[in-house]
Design a protein around this nucleic acid. Structure first.
Length: 210
DNA sequence: CGTGTGATGTCT
DNA sequence: GACATCACACGG
């Protein structure tokens, strides 16, 4: 039985900035051994290719790590940052070819106690308390920890172990709440004028941002 | 509340 | 050496 609300890879087969905005409000759902966790996407960033000095694909050629940024739309790209955290990206096409959308923050929705335990906020899921919610998915590294997303997912296709399933996109509810801002964590010395591009999209009044 | 620092895989 | 990060320590 296929669920019509699960987005297919073809969802990603259009201009990357349209995809990025369309992701806001949708539900990111992770399934591990029957355990479902997930949340509502509230913050994303676009990374392109040769035209974007902040992008892992800036050289224009794939490496073993970055190959998913050059692959079929809907491919998952997970990389390790600072040696200890993972970041989740979803492949979408750009005018220069390679590109991906970094998922930066979600509103926790499903199995929050399980996510709190994965985040190391509690030893036992029974000790979960709602006040922990803001610490579960308010950043790209935190979100991957909460969802048990590791680099072994990189290169696989969206849809089974990790899916976009349900949730109402913000553009269909209150499009004025979509705000474009500069991307976070970049510096002008290495990225140049790229730091000024408004390629971070957020649900502007969300309390779940990074 | 803010600022500073240490942890450390992958690519240049 | 830089980095698309995070948690913790410390000072106000």
């Amino acid at each position: 039985m296929s669920d019509e609300t699960i987005l297919k890879p073809s969802f990603f087969d259009r201009h990357i900035h349209d995809v990025a905005r369309d992701l806001l409000g949708r539900h990111l759902v992770r399934s591990v051994d029957g355990q479902i966790t997930g949340g509502r996407i509230v913050e994303v960033e676009v990374y392109e290719g040769q035209n974007d000095r902040a992008s892992h694909a800036r050289s224009g050629a794939p490496t073993k790590r970055t190959a998913p940024m050059f692959a079929q739309p809907g491919t998952i790209y997970v990389y390790t940052i600072y040696g200890m955290y993972q970041c989740l990206n979803l492949r979408a096409p750009t005018p220069v070819g390679p590109g991906a959308i970094l998922i930066r923050a979600c509103q926790p929705l499903m199995a929050r106690a399980v996510m709190a335990r994965r985040r190391g906020l509690v030893d036992d899921a029974d000790d979960y308390a709602p006040k922990m919610d803001r610490k579960l998915m308010s950043g790209p590294g935190k979100l991957c920890q909460a969802l048990s997303i590791d680099t072994d997912l990189s290169g696989t296709m969206i849809g089974e172990q990790l899916a976009l399933e349900g949730g109402e996109p913000i553009w269909r509810q209150t499009p004025e709440r979509i705000e474009a801002t500069p991307r976070r964590g970049l510096n002008r010395k290495t990225c140049g004028d790229c730091v000024d591009r408004l390629w971070r999209y957020v649900v502007c009044d969300s309390r779940w941002l990074s």
